[in-house]
Design a protein around this nucleic acid. Structure first.
Lengths: 155, 155
DNA sequence: GGTGAAAGATTGACCGC
DNA sequence: GCGGTCAATCTTTCACC
């Protein structure tokens, strides 16, 4: 169970994973080695899943992204695992959410252009069993991109 | 314009922002100082937007997330800037996408529980002008969470 | 962009609570 | 178990070519 020191560390590292342990120490009120030990423990327990650079999509050659709302046949059971497995492997697929409501899956997909997105839908979605239908919402602007979570509530 | 060295650096740092410049150097085929200079330039030009820790939502006390499909009145002009501004400020809102298609905005929202999500919809969505309707898709599982982009295509 | 050295950060050993 | 101090090690960063 994380205490407030841990939550402060996590909140700081969510904003800047490269913050030196010394700055972290000042912020959370511990010594640098104490911050380091806690940070290491947070990594080992999986509270920190990974530490990554957020890169501009255009720089990486991904010019468009789509939100895809997928509706499955109404006997979806474990068979959709096959679909999800193929989505996990597909590099263009950045996020897969299982949802309840008007749809069953929501995807966040990157593409170089519309033609390559069409390819993706053909090989991955149209080809899949149990996909009844899907709707593509083309992203015009990613107005807020907060890969980090909201800050934790401190006790 | 990034060359292949830059793209390799970006691809590596997307997977692990803490990779030492020495390892980076081995991977991309440059010396550590060269990698460092390129990395710094990539930060300064905004190709690297930021470097963050991906934290487990449950550790941070965010137990549920939602995908929200927002439909606006059909005279949305600049007025929706007010809505987007409030969404950008709201800590629970992790992503805001402007989209074309059956809806106008897609949100990715975190909440501590359903009651606090209800609060959010009341204060931020129901209260907003020009929101015609919205649909909430409750996330049951974030099966793929790839805050990083797909790898770049190298020439 | 490479080399080598200075500056700074991370990590380990050890002590005390 | 926890954190603190000090020191060794490793990384980042700079100066110079």
């Amino acid at each position: 169970m994380p205490d407030d020191f841990d939550l402060r560390i996590l909140t700081a590292l969510q904003a800047d994973a490269r913050m030196p342990a010394n700055d972290l120490a000042d912020r959370v009120g511990l010594s640098a080695p104490a911050c380091y030990r806690r940070t290491r423990a947070l990594r080992e327990t999986g509270a920190i899943e990974r530490e990554i650079a957020i890169v501009s999509p255009k720089t990486m050659g991904w010019t468009i992204t789509m939100i895809v709302l997928v509706t499955l046949e109404r006997d979806r059971g474990r068979i959709i695992d096959d679909l999800v497995r193929s989505l996990k492997v597909a590099p263009e697929v950045m996020d897969v959410w299982y949802v309840t409501g008007d749809h069953d899956l929501v995807l966040h997909v990157a593409a170089h252009d519309m033609a390559s997105y069409d390819d993706f839908t053909r090989t991955t979605l149209h080809a899949a069993e149990h996909v009844r239908s899907f709707k593509t919402l083309v992203v015009m602007d990613h107005a807020k991109r907060n890969a980090a979570l909201p800050p934790a509530h401190l006790g």
